[in-house]
Design a protein around this nucleic acid. Structure first.
Lengths: 142, 142
DNA sequence: TTTCAATAGTTGTCAATGCAAATGTTGTGA
DNA sequence: TCACAACATTTGCATTGACAACTATTGAAA
């Protein structure tokens, strides 16, 4: 069978990814939060304090973009950014109480959209999709 | 189980999508083509002439962005853009010979990356992922 | 038919993004 | 310990991209 762009994996991935981010982004906007911001908040909530580089890798947000994004969240009192004592280059990024509270309010919205997305699909099928997406990611990084 | 962002479907989708676009985009850059440009070219190649709105829906590129993107490709002689006779509002967008030729050269690169991405994964598993991504997309549009 | 709403596309403006250069800090070999 | 490479983050600058406003054309109601 010849290659058909509109049936390719990248096409389907992009289409779903864009749509999901659009919908979720609309809802986040009510809280003056963007999707990349949410990614940062959610990772910090789940994984605890991180350096900028770590956070960049975990959120797939480019370093310079993330640096400014974090700056904004610091100004809004949602994030704390401190140079650590042991190594003056490294920065420790963590949620404040306000940041934790806001993230806790936003997570149900994320869950809601994940539920909408996976309606009528078996739990084990979603698990399988995730497993394959992890494999694909590993392939791309090899 | 509590919701874990770094195990959520959106997380995996975004991660793979960004990585794939990065890698493919690097290769396209040698031809002065961006990923959104390639999407437009590939859709036109596969589906034939389209209006701007149709092309926007098929490529998931925003209208105003696409308008300028198409403008650029017209200047480079890869695309033809003509107002149709029956309806002066509508624009007919199609590949030129040069556009067809270039797209034919780029498609193997897309196929190459799809192969890299799916290495070691069974054909039927990829088919299944695509099927589920289509379902998810439908859920999001309902 | 005339007016007004709807449609299709383009352009103005400004925020978001990313690369590359700059800053500041730590590690390392002579 | 001194010079310099490597590292972590930030900032300058130029591009991209999106929303909203605008233009042009068509359809539809009065």
């Amino acid at each position: 069978m010849s290659h058909q762009f509109v049936n390719s994996l990248p096409f389907h991935l992009n289409r779903v990814g864009v749509k999901l981010a659009d919908l979720f982004g609309e809802r986040l906007a009510e809280h003056a939060i963007t999707v990349p911001m949410y990614r940062a908040l959610a990772v910090l909530h789940q994984e605890g304090p991180k350096t900028l580089t770590e956070l960049s890798q975990l959120t797939n947000v480019e370093l310079s973009t993330l640096s400014r994004l974090v700056g904004g969240l610091v100004k809004r009192g949602l994030i704390l950014r401190t140079r650590i004592e042991e190594n003056g280059r490294i920065v420790r990024i963590e949620l404040t109480k306000d940041g934790e509270d806001l993230t806790a309010k936003l997570m149900p919205i994320a869950i809601e959209y994940e539920q909408i997305a996976t309606q009528g699909i078996e739990e084990h099928e979603i698990t399988e999709v995730k497993r394959l997406l992890i494999l694909i990611y590993q392939n791309l990084n090899a």
